[in-house]
Design a protein around this nucleic acid. Structure first.
Lengths: 349, 349
DNA sequence: ACCAAGAATTGGAACGATCAAAGTTTGATT
DNA sequence: AATCAAACTTTGATCGTTCCAATTCTTGGT
């Protein structure tokens, strides 16, 4: 039980050279089947395992993806990043990649961290989350030719189609359209929307899904939409207050779609409190809270997002980082979320 | 902008040898201050960064801690692991360590993953979470001399004081005692407890805090305690049902402490629904849900837990993994959680 | 049988850092 | 001034792997 076996040991046992062992490991196709078998036997007999550090030193690749653990992870929607992380780790593993975490309180310090991890050849590609308008990180990454992909599209109009910026995002608009149409199909006609203050890339996109559905199905104009549109910040208490006012002012409301589960929870509380426990309310993210309290919500398939990110970085089935030249149409991916319908509610009647 | 600079380049610029540069980096104390300064200038002038792979290959250490991303991460308490991960990453970084993620659906597959990461010298210590009674992982790790520490104490009586098993845990008993005493101080006398079915290491420990406080303050005997003790699984809907029954059967209840925020949420819903919106309810974990809905909860200081884990693995201030011989009394750490009091509730009145 | 062309395999060098041991300078002591 | 110890610097070897160029082995056509 002394030293771990090396390629040398395997080669000796299989009566071949180091390089042949290496070939079996890296390019098995060029090794004659009989030889390959002998080497593989030796490998499993010795319990040999490639030394990652040596391999990385030689190849100058780390087979590691870096991702920042968002400090804003708390809050009801925190579990989204969590689930994404899980899916990413799992799928990266299947491609022989590892996921390394780091933290940074600000975008600038994140860039500094990225530089450190990169220069130390600790990480060879990055995944960014929570992109925002005018994000300095993507600019820096492109400029310094660091491979990366983002979960979240860039919210500047020009950047959106930049083939150098690989991104995967969830089609929030489609999600809210589906939610709205679900309510309209159920016979509702006064479906209100509770969203975040504009401008918000994500928020405005989601609102559009609701607005489009309402326009198409009911022929509403902008003024009609504006009358059904309500705004509040991402906070349950504020949402409860706004929704309470809404319910008082608009007693004929028969459906409410929300930009997030937090707002939906606030609305649920307000509805229960106002004696409207059966008002259909739909949230976004399908967080544990939606499951627990029992309201419908729009579920992002984070597995698909993770798969998309890896595909953009590494090609469809590759296990190596792809060069930074995706064909223009292939640099982006929009994943369609799914409406999870829940009834009845669990809040007090 | 061609090659990254190496120690050689730095040495050349500073007119010293490779080794002197290495000494400045690793054991600065033995280098004459003037020389050290010259080397440091050269380093920052060239923007030199140590190559992690080379260093690891030579030293046979990866400076990396592995942690499994729990598949059970969903659920209301999921954010606990999340926050722990964040704290761990941050503090590991301060000690020059990195955190690598992996996943595994079962304990046995987790062991297999650990073996792979270890043999490839990808990771040199592991942090385990969610330990359970008769956990095969800790046994395997001890047997194979893989450095590790767990967040969560071992729930076998023998293992608890094993100096080979480093662990940090939160003193759930102290947390529930504090919560209970807070209610008793406020004048309550009929403080019920809503917990998980026994046996559950964590659950039974938390119950003990409540039971001790009630015994000491009110002189209750076992029968008296049993009458105030209610059980349900970790699920909001079940908790709502049990709490509803409880409120009907025991109208004189004037306080309820719960083993988790999920159960507390269920109880909140039941209380609001039963016309007892002001019944003081206290949860555990201080999840986003407790903040959002507005009930008191017991907060685990995950920063302290992370610090404790690293301290056990690496010594008080070290930046190297410590040998596996902690003094017997120093192998464990129990962190005291803190009661976060919230009023008023945000649920409908 | 012979040879060329391709497939399969080999040994030496290199990746960039640290270790170990030998070499040099410095400063105090006699 | 000579000597010696302590402090610091230098050089060569090494970690385990893959790359590179050279070599040997097959195979099939003439």
């Amino acid at each position: 039980m002394g030293q771990l076996p090396t390629v040398e040991d395997v080669a000796l046992l299989a009566s071949v050279s180091r390089q042949t062992v290496s070939n079996v490991l890296n390019t098995p196709a060029i090794v004659k089947p009989a030889t390959r078998q002998r080497v593989e036997d030796a490998i499993s007999q010795l319990g040999y395992r490639q030394n990652a550090s040596a391999r990385r030193l030689r190849t100058q690749k780390s087979s590691t993806i870096g991702i920042r653990l968002d400090p804003m992870v708390n809050g009801i929607s925190g579990s989204v990043l969590d689930r994404f992380l899980h899916a990413l780790t799992e799928q990266a593993d299947a491609r022989g990649m590892r996921v390394l975490l780091f933290t940074a309180p600000t975008p600038d310090e994140e860039i500094e961290q990225i530089r450190r991890l990169r220069d130390g050849s600790d990480v060879d590609a990055f995944v960014l989350t929570a992109t925002f308008h005018g994000d300095p990180r993507t600019e820096w990454l492109i400029e310094n030719r660091v491979p990366f992909a983002t979960f979240g599209r860039p919210w500047g109009i020009d950047d959106m189609n930049d083939p150098q910026h690989l991104w995967v995002d969830v089609d929030g608009s489609a999600g809210l359209r589906a939610a709205t149409e679900h309510l309209l199909d159920g016979g509702a006609t006064r479906v209100h929307y509770l969203g975040w203050p504009s401008p918000s890339g994500t928020g405005d996109d989601r609102r559009r899904g609701w607005a489009d559905a309402m326009r198409e199905r009911l022929g509403l104009d902008e003024a009609g939409l504006a009358a059904l549109h309500h705004v509040t910040v991402e906070d349950v208490a504020s949402a409860t207050a706004v929704a309470t006012a809404l319910l008082t002012a608009e007693p004929d409301i028969d459906g409410l779609v929300c930009v997030s589960d937090s707002l939906a929870l606030g609305a649920m509380i307000a509805a229960a409190s106002a004696g409207r426990p059966d008002l259909p309310i739909i949230g976004f993210d399908n967080t544990p809270i939606a499951q627990a309290v029992g309201f419908s919500s729009i579920e992002q398939s984070l597995g698909e997002v993770a798969a998309g990110v890896l595909e953009l970085l590494m090609g469809a089935t590759g296990s190596d980082l792809i060069g930074r030249t995706p064909s223009p149409g292939e640099a982006h991916r929009l994943v369609t979320p799914q409406l999870i319908v829940r009834r009845p509610h669990n809040l007090p009647i």
